[in-house]
Amino acid sequence: MSAPVLEVSGLAYAYPDGHQALYGVDLALTRGERVALLGPNGAGKTTLVLHLNGILTGGLGSVRVDGMAVGRQTLQEVRRRVGVVFQDPDDQLFMPTVRDDVAFGPANLGLRGAELSARVRQALERVGMEEYTDRPPHHLSFGQRRRVAVATVLAMEPSILVLDEPSSNLDPASRRELADILRGLDVTVLMVTHDLPYALELCERSVILDGGAIVADGPTPEVLGDAELLAAHRLELPYGFDPAIVRTTRPPRSEGAGAALTG
């Protein structure tokens, strides 16, 4: 694919209190890619994410989604195309039932009636949560709530899925289930995370953001294999974890496995 789904160029931003969070970020994602956005706390990751769907604007540089510049006129369309899943599912799920919550986004896009119900059902099926349609979100487990949070965004049929710390607070089984779901989705993914093994497992490409600028961009095994690079940017692999070993033993990425999961 030649045209990037997401194209960030020269993006710089300072908060109203004067704190400069981004110093000229350049980043492009092609369709179908899964990219990990790594970086220490305070690197500007959240600020960058909030620019991708136009929540924050007014700095220098530009963000383009499917070739469309993010601006006041395109805001509604950009927010459909860029689906952001926030870190705390309790922030994301604010309606009385799972169904209402998943319907919230598409309803804002003007969908009603049978079309809306179909969209909700499909989105919940894609994350394996269709049995929980009528439950209130606070009766679900944390892992289930995170899956529903992904569904709320999938229901808008986005071009790119942006996940903020998708594996945080999940037990190992929920973490793996979410990985299976993400691997099965046919959508471009930008995943903000501190969980380096998760990045290696899911994303072929990794980008390191530090001090408000992109400092590394390459295949995940190479980025994670560079001990000096990681140390320079306060990133650490878990004890005893060697990305080189995983790289040779990991099964090749297969779309078929993912499709079987959701189908």
Binding site: L50, N53, I55, Q76, R79, R80, G83, V84, F86, D88, D91, Q92, F94, F104, G105, N108, L109, T152, V153, M156
Partner: peptide, 10 residues
């Protein structure tokens, strides 16, 4: 944060 999440979904 909830308001941000709402804005993000249009």
């Amino acid at each position: 944060r909830v308001h941000l999440a709402m804005l993000s979904r249009g």
